[in-house]
């Protein structure tokens, strides 16, 4: 069996949980499923999470990742949490623009601006 690669690393700021996507390319369904499970388990650890997804390492993704992000956002909003995305490079940002997902995701330039103004996590 192929070894399980790390998909995310998690860091904690005062009012936010920061999930850094560690893979450069997120394309395969199996990888996307593994990524989703990892992120969902982080969300479940906090009642009302302020989750920041950091894309600093991501150089390529498929439309299936966009589906994953929508599932993640639904889960967070059901639990009255907040989701913010940051450090998205210009090529990946173009994908968000083309699909108009810039309308439904809060996208910030960097981690510092994404953290600003978040309420305390419960």
């Amino acid at each position: 069996m192929a070894p399980i690669k790390p998909r995310i690393s998690v860091e904690y700021a005062e009012n936010a949980t920061i999930v850094i996507l560690t893979d450069e390319r997120i394309l395969e369904e199996k990888d996307i499923q593994a990524l989703q499970e990892s992120i969902m388990s982080v969300i479940e650890q906090v009642e009302q999470i302020n989750l920041i997804l950091d894309f600093r390492n991501v150089r390529a993704l498929s439309s299936a990742v966009l589906g994953l992000l929508i599932r993640v956002s639904k889960k967070i909003y059901e639990r009255d949490g907040q989701l913010r995305l940051c450090n998205i490079n210009s090529r990946i940002y173009e994908i968000f623009k083309i699909t108009r997902l810039t309308k439904i995701f809060d996208i910030y330039k960097d981690r510092e601006s994404a953290i600003e103004g978040l309420p305390a996590e419960d």
């Binding site: 439309s63 589906g67 083309i98 699909t99």
Partner: peptide, 21 residues
């Protein structure tokens, strides 16, 4: 069109749009 209305919140259906783009 995945960019319109409620389709924006669907988890699938963007592949063809990206190919065209």
């Amino acid at each position: 069109d995945p960019r319109r209305g409620e389709n924006l919140y669907k988890t699938e259906g963007r592949g063809l749009l990206l190919m065209r783009s």
